Amino acid sequence: MVRNYNLWDDPTKSNEVLVKLADSLKVVNALKDLRYKAEEAKLIAQLAEMEAIDYGLFKRAYRASLDVSKLLDQYEMSKLLRGPNDVEGASVTIKAGSNGICPEIWAEQLLNMYVRWADKEGYRGRVVDKCCCKNGGVKSATIEFEFEYAFGYLSGETGAHCLINFPNGSFPHEATLACVDVVPLFLETSPDLQISDEDLLFSSPSLPGERQSIAKPAACIQHIPTGIAVRGTTLQIR
């Protein structure tokens, strides 16, 4: 396919081919790593048997087997994630609901859960926006996960997350809700989007000359046709 010289006359098509070749190379390298780890675990186990059960060697074999299992799980998951944007990073936005007991606290717990998950798995995730409440918790927060297949892993988190308390085994109290929205975060290439200025709505939480609160976003831009909104809290006017 690459030898077709007419291919290079179309930059878009040639770029797609190169991306597919790079993805295929990643799969081959992953399988090579998997084979190496499996052979290493087998060899260490055989050496341990020859040395009349050496605890240190068995411990190394166990760690190698865990590496094999993790690589195999990652490879199998990558084969399942075949959506158009599954390979991309992910931007996760959490918003506290208006009902229930302390929805802001529940939203903060969800935020901490996603951050701890990323740390545990060794993934790169960073909180880029956080709107805190005076009494604790967060009204909204956004986390960006910059690793391959993040969107595929996390897209199922989209929706309302419900926390229900059962005090003393009685009937549950009112449910506490927080909404989670997940959108792709393009790591290398981004789609060529044409956005008209007429489709954008700019708003600010404060009137000109009014003191802005730390808990409120500095500005908000909404794409009217899709309803997608972008908020910023980094810049504050005092």
Rank of each mutant, 00 (worst) to 15 (best):
V2F: 00
R3V: 11
N4H: 10
Y5R: 11
K13L: 02
L18E: 14
K20T: 07
R35V: 02
R35N: 06
Y36V: 14
L43G: 10
A48P: 07
D54R: 00
Y62I: 09
D67M: 05
S69R: 14
M77T: 13
K79T: 03
P84W: 04
E88T: 07
E88P: 03
A90I: 04
S91N: 02
V92C: 03
S98C: 09
P103Q: 05
E104N: 06
E104C: 05
I105L: 10
E108Q: 06
Q109K: 13
L110K: 09
N112H: 14
R116F: 13
W117N: 03
E121Q: 04
R126A: 10
C131P: 07
K134V: 11
V138I: 10
V138T: 05
I143T: 01
E157H: 01
T158Y: 12
N168L: 12
G169S: 15
F171R: 11
F171K: 12
E174Q: 13
L177P: 05
C179V: 11
V182M: 02
L187N: 10
T189K: 15
I195G: 01
I195Q: 01
S196N: 03
D199C: 02
L200Q: 00
F202L: 02
F202E: 01
F202Q: 01
S203F: 06
S204Q: 13
P217F: 09
A218W: 06
I224M: 15
R231H: 12
T234S: 14
I237V: 13
I237S: 14
R238P: 11
